[in-house]
Structures are given as C-alpha cells and as structure tokens.
C-alpha cells in the first residue's frame, strides 16, 4: 500500500517575477543538468582521488625528483651542481662494486625468497588442517614478525659470530671447522637470508592460509571421492586455486627482497656490507654513496637502476608465475592424466 504525497505548492518560489522568467529559468535548468552530469561522470574519480593525490606527492614526485638528481652533480649538503647527463650512471655501471652488489642482492634474494615461499606454503597447508588450538598456532607463526628487525639482527649476530658465535661454538664442539660467517661470501648470504626468513615466513604463511581457507571445500570432497590423496589434492587443487595470492606473495617478496637493507646493514658493526663487499646489497651501496661519500647524484643513479631492475624482474616473475600456475590448472592436469592413461594403454 502506498500513499502519494502531493507536493505543496510554492508559488512564490516556483514562479519568479514574470520579468525575469525568460532569461533565468533556462539557465538554471542548464546549470543543474550540467552539475548532475558532472556528478555522475566526475564523482567516482573524485572519491578515489585522495589516493592518487597522495601517491603523486609521496610516490611519483620523489621518483621524478630522484631522476632529476641523478643527472646532476649533487652533494648531500652543497646541493645541486652541474648538469652531467648520464655520467653518474656510467660511473656506477663502471664500478666493480655495483656488480658485486647486484650479485649479492640476487643471491640473498634467491636464498631467502624461494625457501621462504615454499616453507610458507607447507606451513599454511598444515595450519589449514583441523588442528587443536588453531589460533595459538596461527598466532605463533606470526610472532617473529612483530619482533623489531634491529632486535632480530642483534640476536642473530650473536649466533653468527665468527669466533665466539653460538653456531661456530657448537660446530667446534662437534669437531668441525668454524664457518666464516662474516668473512666469506656465501655463508654471509645464508646468515642474512636466515634473518629474513625468520621474520617473513610466518607472515607469508598467514596470507597463504587466508587464501587457502577461501577455497571451496566441495573441491576437496569431490577429489576425495575420486580417490585423490592429500598430496594430489595439494598440487591439483590448493596450488592452482592459490594462483592470484601466490602471484601477490611472489611479487611483493621480490620487491622486498631486492630492496633488502635492514638485515645486511645490521649484520656487522660498520653496516657497509663487509670489507670486500661480501654482503653489500644494492641498497647498502646506495647508502654508502649517498651518506658515506655524500654523493647524492651517484646514489640517485643507483636508485634508478634499482628501480629498473625491480620492474624488469617483476615482469619476468609475473610471466613465470602465470605460466607455472596455469600449468597446474585442473584442465591441464586432466589432460596429463589422460595422456598418462593413454601411455599405459599403449605400453600394454
């Protein structure tokens, strides 16, 4: 049942003095129409604009300004000097230290990111089962994440001491040679990767767990009825269903991994990546140039090179992840099992 309310007449407002009528009313209609058209078209952009305005100020502007700095001679205090074109880039690319830093960055990134994502996947898969005290375990894996990186570095630098460190002491007791955690390249990368993994594995696991729980349980039931075991379910349902989340995790861990700074900086007392640059990453190299030598032009050039490297690696990464994840999609799996069945037939 509806009631129709009649609009009260408002003669005074509805009909202005006759003399003004011919000019004003068409204009007023036009304005309100325009406004409402704008409202429809512009408002959505207005509502999302705060992010982009903020991004332009804190993201885009520094990026472009860094590019501006990188083509000048620029001292941290003295400020802008002469325009030098791509001289800073040429200098940096000609330095063996830059290539050492690049090697270290990728090495530490691979040693940390790959085991980390795999371990996080396994942890998430275990946490996804019906465990007693679920919340306790789930909070437990996040615990390392809330420890400040500086504190983590303090604990680990105690463990990884060359002469009196915990690990080398234990190796010594077992009659093994101590490992030069700070003097050799690979052990130092392993030690830093351990710190990174300690901090981030739980966090990654929780993100993956959240995605796992969103997978409809029907799939698993159906798979179970079809006779698929746990491992088969994991590879044929869980992994393909996690694809978007996996891409997210891999892309963010790539960006984080290539920008790694805290852990290598806290790894020894100087924070410059070792006497021969054993664990000097690109960000540490950038820091040494900008704040050690006060040469901002070169530091900015390194920053831009790092940016380009991250973009390139990110794209490669995205392509790889897509290929791998779709390779495991249910259709393909079916095709493969059919192929296998066919092969078996043929063999017989």
């Amino acid at each position: 049942m509806t009631t129709t309310a009649t609009r009260p007449e408002r003669p005074a407002l509805a009909s202005p003095p006759p003399a003004l009528r011919p000019e004003r009313s068409p204009r007023r209609i036009a304005l309100s129409q325009t406004l409402s058209r704008w409202d429809v078209k512009v408002s959505p952009y207005l509502y999302i604009s705060p992010f982009f305005i903020l991004f332009a100020i804190v993201g885009l502007f520094p990026l472009l300004y860094t590019a501006w700095v990188s083509v000048h001679e620029w001292n941290l205090i003295g400020g802008q000097g002469d325009f030098v074109g791509f001289e800073n880039f040429a200098f940096v690319l000609g330095q063996p230290q830059f290539w050492i830093a690049l090697r270290n960055t990728f090495s530490i990134f691979l040693i940390s990111a790959v085991p980390q994502v795999i371990a996080a996947l396994l942890i998430a898969a275990v946490l996804d089962r019906n465990l007693r005290a679920k919340t306790f375990w789930r909070m437990g894996v996040l615990l390392p994440y809330v420890v400040a990186p500086v504190a983590v570095a303090l604990i680990f630098s105690n463990m990884f001491g060359d002469q009196y460190g915990l690990i080398n002491n234990m190796l010594g007791r077992l009659g093994l040679d101590p490992i030069g955690w700070h003097s050799e390249v690979l052990p130092s990368h392993l030690a830093i990767a351990t710190m990174v993994n300690f901090r981030w594995t739980g966090y990654t696991a929780l993100i993956l767990l959240a995605a796992m729980q969103a997978i409809p349980r029907d799939y698993y039931e159906a798979a179970m009825i079809d006779g698929a075991g746990l491992v088969r379910q994991f590879f044929s349902i869980t992994i393909p269903q996690l694809r978007p989340t996996l891409i997210f995790v891999i892309v963010t861990s790539t960006i984080g991994g290539l920008q790694i700074f805290d852990e290598p900086r806290m790894f020894d007392q100087f924070g410059q990546g070792g006497a021969s640059g054993q664990w000097m990453t690109i960000t540490i190299y950038l820091y040494n140039l900008g704040w050690g030598q006060l040469n901002f032009g070169r530091a900015a050039a390194v920053a831009w090179l790092l940016f380009l490297i991250i973009v390139i690696v990110g794209l490669i990464n995205l392509a790889l992840t897509r290929a791998i994840a779709s390779g495991d999609s249910p259709q393909k799996v079916l095709a493969r099992s059919q192929r296998r069945a066919a092969q078996k037939e043929a063999a017989r």
């Binding site: 630098s157 105690n158 001491g161 060359d162 002469q163 009196y164 460190g165 700070h182 020894d268 007392q269």
Partner: peptide, 9 residues
C-alpha cells in the same frame, strides 16, 4: 674487528 660482537667478547 673492533666493535664487533667477537671483540666485545
């Protein structure tokens, strides 16, 4: 190395 953890030990 001076100021390292080992040095303090």
């Amino acid at each position: 190395g001076q100021w390292s953890d080992d040095w303090f030990a």
